[in-house]
Design a binder for these strands. Sequence first.
DNA 1: GCCCAGGGAATCG
DNA 2: CGATTCCATGGG
Length: 273
Amino acid sequence: MEYLIKDKDIWFKQKDFSLSETLDCGQSFRWTPLLAGNGYKGFFGENALTITKNSDDDYFVLHNQSEEQFLNIWVEYFDLNTDYKILKETFSDDEILKKACAFAGGIRLLKQDKWEALCSFIISQNNNIPRIKGIINRICEEFGIHKKDGFTFPSPEKISSLTLDELASIRSGFRARYILDAAKKITSGEINLEDISNMELPQARIELMKICGVGAKVAECALLYGMYRVEAFPIDVWIKRVLANYYPQGLPECIKGYEGIAQQYLFHYIRNL
DNA sequence: GCCCAGGGAATCG
DNA sequence: CGATTCCATGGG
């Protein structure tokens, strides 16, 4: 992919990429829109980033990032080497998906941190997006590492050292004990997310569901969003509606192997109809 | 199988 | 405005 190094920034062009559709579609909860409205700031692991898009020349700008950081971290994170145009063309064999892809064609699947994604989707259960963001902001501010551009997401080790009482300040309700159980099982080695990310999907699901508070939906989200298992297909209340309304006979053949990415378009489509 | 947990947002009357 | 509904999982 082509990019420019301008002062301390990286400039690049990318089709099939919308910042709002990708960063504000419910797959990640850690990106905050800039007041100027032209971009977002957020974190991946220890790496803080401000990303904007120029309205005049369509360049995306990664602020204050080296070429190395761009190539080693952000190209991966934003999945910039995957051709979403081809994916959308393939999905468009199906009439509903054709509409969904046209509706929000700038969605990309982020390659997020395994632990942060698991923990975030434990928090997301039976919950709405504004409140999920609030809880995750608080968990970072109270227990993450304070960097100059914000707070990192706390490690499993850090969380596992806390008591339920100490976790009460993030106001996550009944999910607090789930977060704690996940952190403890990971810290003890009973659950190994790196290993799970390489397992066959059925076995990976079984392993994740050993964590209290991780059911079928949360496990599927952890696989899709934290482990880039694009064949995982989380079914929440919205996707249930999609299945009932449009696919009573089952999912179309054209999304096979990429069900999770197709799900992103369908989710956005049904929610914003 | 059924209800509730803990809470804020969305929707309704 | 207040009342009701929504939401994914586990435990009683």
